[in-house]
């Protein structure tokens, strides 16, 4: 795993602070606590990776932040502050005004996220039509500019084409273009490269990276891919069973994990940490979120769990400069 990236850029102002966010999902078999007391901060010009396996609550966190929870899911606690104001306290109309210039999101499924019956130009022009009330013509000119910026060849002639006439990678570029159209303070990218092949993935990540720097945006990158996080994030928040279990600068966390789960995760992929050793996998499966173990949610799979792990839930607490872990015995995890 690469830990040699240049030092994190000077930290800007906190663009978004998520504070003890909790989300419940109602299921026929009971309530699932899919996001539990998640807190993180992301600064302008910085990338935060929300890292975890599928089902760990990272996507649900993103959806809650962006305001796109399914009707069966509810935010049951916490605050989401965008440039200081609490999104959850805003009216629907006020949130709509922020959707685009304040907070934008790039969704997972590039292939179906564009509306098949409208030209890409119409869809790219929409943010300008809605928020800046530009004329059709002016908005279309902006759309062409955007297409050019995200690397679509021949934007002038392709602005009137339909989504099905573009490749998967190009569609993802179009979605990104739409998201960054109004230079959002915070951009959430939810597994932005899932449906794409590897070479295209790298190009898309590169594009997000450049746009972030150019627009001084705070980027929240939702991913399950350690390599993507290592390469493109400044900070990382590792999630397990709905909670953040470890957070810190990505190089530090990956070089010296302080939570047994992060350790297990790093040991299960080939990299410099475990060169020459056999890969180790974390035994067992993540818990059912309708019946999370008492105390520490990871205790059923943790190699160093003790009795009080079952009775006391570990809080995310500081373990060093800018670092935090939610483990009673993080010192042991660090040196195991």
């Amino acid at each position: 795993m690469s830990t040699t990236r240049e030092a994190a850029p000077p930290s800007g102002a906190a663009a978004m602070e998520v504070d003890r966010l909790s989300v419940d999902v109602r299921t026929p078999e009971g309530t699932a606590h899919v996001v539990r007391d998640v807190s993180f901060t992301v600064r302008s010009g910085e990338t935060l990776a929300l890292l975890g396996e599928s089902g760990c609550g990272k996507s649900m966190t993103a959806q809650a932040v962006a305001g796109f929870l399914e009707p069966v899911a509810d935010v049951v606690g916490g605050e989401i502050r965008l440039n200081g104001s609490d999104l959850l306290a805003l009216s629907a109309a006020a949130r709509r005004r922020l959707a685009g210039p304040g907070l934008a999101i790039v969704f997972q499924d590039a292939l179906t996220a564009l509306n098949p019956v409208f030209t890409v130009g119409t869809q790219l022009a929409e943010p300008f039509r809605i928020h800046e009330r530009l004329s059709r013509k002016a908005a279309k000119a902006k759309a062409v500019e955007l297409m050019e910026r995200v690397g679509i060849p021949e934007p002038r002639s392709r602005v009137d084409a339909y989504p099905h006439q573009f490749s998967g990678g190009m569609r993802q570029r179009l979605l990104i273009a739409m998201a960054v159209a109004l230079r959002p303070s915070v951009l959430i990218a939810d597994e932005p490269t899932t449906a794409l092949d590897v070479t295209v993935q790298a190009q898309i990540m590169e594009l997000l990276h450049d746009l972030r720097a150019e627009q001084d945006t705070a980027l929240v990158l939702i991913t399950h891919d350690l390599a993507v996080a290592a390469e493109h994030a400044d900070h990382v928040a590792v999630m397990y069973a709905g909670s953040v279990v470890e957070a810190g600068p990505v190089g530090d966390v990956f070089a010296d994990p302080r939570h047994p789960y992060t350790r297990g995760l790093l040991d299960s992929v080939p990299g410099s940490r475990n060169r020459g050793e056999p890969l180790r996998f974390i035994p067992g499966n993540p818990p059912d979120l309708r019946a999370v173990p008492t105390g520490c949610a990871f205790r059923t799979r943790c190699p160093i769990a003790r009795e009080d792990c079952a009775t006391h839930r570990p809080e995310l607490s500081e373990t060093g400069l800018g670092r935090a872990a939610a483990c009673h015995y993080w010192k042991e995890a660090a040196h195991a």
Binding site: A66, F68, R96, R97, L98, A99, G100, A104, I105, F107, T112, A113, L114, N115, P116, E126, P127, I130, H131, L175, M178, A179, A181
Partner: peptide, 9 residues
């Protein structure tokens, strides 16, 4: 695409 439309405000 409906979600995307909402995300554009």
């Amino acid at each position: 695409y409906t979600k995307v439309a909402r995300s554009k405000g």
